[in-house]
Design a protein around this nucleic acid. Structure first.
Lengths: 203, 203
DNA sequence: CAATAATGTAAACAATGTTAACACCTCTTC
DNA sequence: GAAGAGGTGTTAACATTGTTTACATTATTG
């Protein structure tokens, strides 16, 4: 099904909903979550405010939709970064590098788009379907690689995953909220990465 | 200076600003950050909306003020929990318990008041004075105790602090945003605490 | 081709943040 | 103590917001 997008006339947009979410995402990225509004988005999509209510029940739900899209975006960045170091093999250094890559991508995203990271983990009264997080699955895959290459014992795997996620997420969150500055960041980064590696790779 | 609160008449409130912040805090705690509003707060304080503008420049600034108050509240909880295990001594087990206590209090707060934890680390365009965080100072004090009781090398101290804060904050943040459920929490908690201790107390 | 569903518009509503002009209280100062 | 000055509250208005209702247009399906 190729994108019809705009047929004959202009009355029907053709792909609102997706356009709305995209514009809303950009709005949040640039001006923060509190400036996300039905009318502002409607203006930028060249559509009447009421039109949005054909696709979203409320502003709250739109917020949830944006949140979900951002979480997916983050996971895609992680996967991309992981692929960039090379395909999965049984090599210890390879799987270790791929593991680091997804953690780095996680906090890199928070540094690059702090407002988006913010909305991604905002408590939304109305979030989309609660599919299991793609990011979490990606982390599990990487841990599986570590196990297969003999770097991680399977019985430690779950513990490693939860610690890794918590500390990486904490670092990302502190950076995004500007609780730690750019100057302090390198130290935090090193501490967290070392700590995770110490805990994951028993020495 | 004892609380004058209400003098002769009712025209002047006597201690608005503080009352406003308190009511705003409770509003956020119960109904979430997005339902914090000038008019809603004004109603509950029995005051005209415009009155708030004698004490706050904007809603945004009030949000920042609430955020600051919550951060202080968290730090006070941490200090309280630490005192509860007993006063500081040179005992290894004592200082270790006091150290754990502040971390536990941190995430306990996030579990008990997720909405407040949320606003505490929201990027606020207008935050109060950027005094060094009380929570951070509390963490540093505990690490000093660990050093003094011979549990932690001084040169590792800063690294320990950053790792501890990141992972504890990450755990708290994931809990508050309901990214991890109450059922998953115990596992996460154990992983993070063990990970921190492994990294802080070289074995 | 006609009927029906989907998707847009237009106009109104209540509620919001914010401001300006005014009222009341408290406090200093002669 | 009276007078005035500054702080603190009220009232009324404004623009903007989320949301709903009634209607218009297009797309789809029998």
């Amino acid at each position: 099904m190729l994108t019809p997008l705009r047929k004959g006339s202009d009355y029907h947009h053709g792909d609102l909903r997706d356009a709305v979410i995209q514009v809303a995402r950009d709005l949040v990225a640039n001006e923060g979550v509190s400036s996300l509004g039905i009318r502002r988005v409607a203006l930028r999509v060249n559509v009447t405010p009421a039109a949005l209510y054909r696709h979203f029940e409320s502003l709250e739900q739109l917020r949830g939709e944006v949140s979900g899209r951002v979480r997916n975006e983050m996971a895609e960045m992680m996967i991309l970064a992981r692929e960039k170091v090379g395909p999965a093999t049984l090599s210890k250094t390879r799987s270790r590098a791929r593991f680091s890559a997804i953690g780095d991508a996680y906090v890199a995203y928070a540094r690059k788009f702090p407002r988006l990271f913010e909305i991604a983990f905002l408590t939304c009264d109305a979030l989309p379907e609660t599919e299991e997080s793609l990011a979490w699955r990606t982390l599990e895959e990487s841990l599986e690689e570590l196990i297969n290459s003999g770097l991680l014992e399977r019985r430690k795997s779950l513990k490693a995953a939860t610690l890794a996620w918590s500390s990486i997420h904490g670092l990302a969150s502190l950076v995004a909220s500007q609780t730690i500055s750019n100057k302090e960041y390198p130290l935090f980064r090193k501490s967290v990465l070392d700590g995770v590696q110490d805990a994951v790779f028993a020495r």
